[in-house]
């Protein structure tokens, strides 16, 4: 059975050369602006109640677009357990090769659900992340940062990232004229300053990063759960997807991929 999914995710994280636990962003190109909470680094495939989202964000949520079981189509795809793209400033892996930890996938449809964990080290699922051998980290990690504007254009409709930045800048400048709250104004001014820098420096990561994807592909071998659907919960399931179209102003990115589950014998 194949379940194909895609959609926008949120990800509030600091960027190199800030430390991965930098709470608000200083020397990278992502920042928690005035009044916003600290970064949490969590990759959210679904919108969360009480979370902070910036104006002009796309509709968030990864959903099932196609499946050979129609009950899944339109359903939600989620990663449970506050997953983090774990690179730790090149300590665990080179950038672009980092795993998502934990990887606990749950897909829900109309009266059906699939859920499975992918432990980094199947032989020792509770092993501390810093101790996991390099080959196992990379086995579940991305396969590099790849410049693929066409992949992103096809999936998101964004073919000209610089135009997106320029339009966003104009929109925020407009918003600023109608904003009186001093903290909200400070936050908007911070975003505007970063977008102005991006427009003036189109080779900077604030623009360039929008053209990259990171591809993941691995087997889910942990405990599996199937609700209302007959699939094999013993054999590994295979997931392949990419993350990309990173928007450092909105702190969101696109996900597209598929889960491949063997049918019950």
């Amino acid at each position: 059975m194949i379940v194909a999914f895609e959609g926008w995710c949120s990800l509030r994280l600091p960027t190199d050369p800030d430390p991965s636990d930098e709470p608000r962003g200083i020397s990278g190109y992502t920042f928690a602006f005035a009044g916003e909470p600290d970064f949490d680094r969590v990759l959210n495939l679904q919108p969360r109640a009480g979370a902070t989202y910036r104006s002009h964000s796309p509709q968030l949520g990864v959903t099932v677009r196609q499946s050979d079981d129609p009950r899944f189509v339109g359903g939600t795809v989620d990663l449970l357990g506050d997953p983090i793209i774990e690179n730790r400033n090149w300590t665990l892996t080179l950038p672009g090769f980092e795993p998502i930890v934990p990887f606990h996938l749950r897909i829900e449809g109309d009266g059906v659900a699939l859920e499975r964990v992918a432990p980094l080290n199947p032989a020792d699922p509770t092993q501390a992340l810093w101790e996991v051998p390099q080959d196992l980290l990379e086995n579940q990690g991305a396969r590099g940062m790849e410049y693929e504007p066409a992949t992103i254009g096809d999936a998101t409709g964004i073919w000209d990232p610089l135009a997106v930045v320029t339009e966003r800048l104009a929109a925020l400048q407009q918003d600023l004229q109608h904003t009186s709250d001093p903290v909200a104004r400070t936050a908007l001014e911070g975003r505007i300053a970063e977008l102005e820098y991006a427009v003036a420096n189109p080779g900077d990561r604030r623009v360039l990063a929008r053209n990259f994807v990171e591809r993941f592909g691995f087997e889910l071998t942990g405990k599996a759960k199937a609700e209302g659907v007959a699939v094999d919960t013993e054999q590994p399931w295979r997931v392949d997807f990419w993350l990309g179209a990173w928007d450092p102003d909105l702190l969101c990115l696109y996900m597209k991929g598929a889960l491949n589950v063997p049918n019950a014998s």
């Binding site: 608000r24 903290v183 936050a187």
Partner: peptide, 28 residues
Amino acid sequence: KRRPDEGVTWQQLELMRQWEASILLIAR
């Protein structure tokens, strides 16, 4: 300082963030 409870306003913090970024750039 990094937080409003340290006796600075959000507006000052935003300015200070830019200063710190600039100083860290110089240090690099």
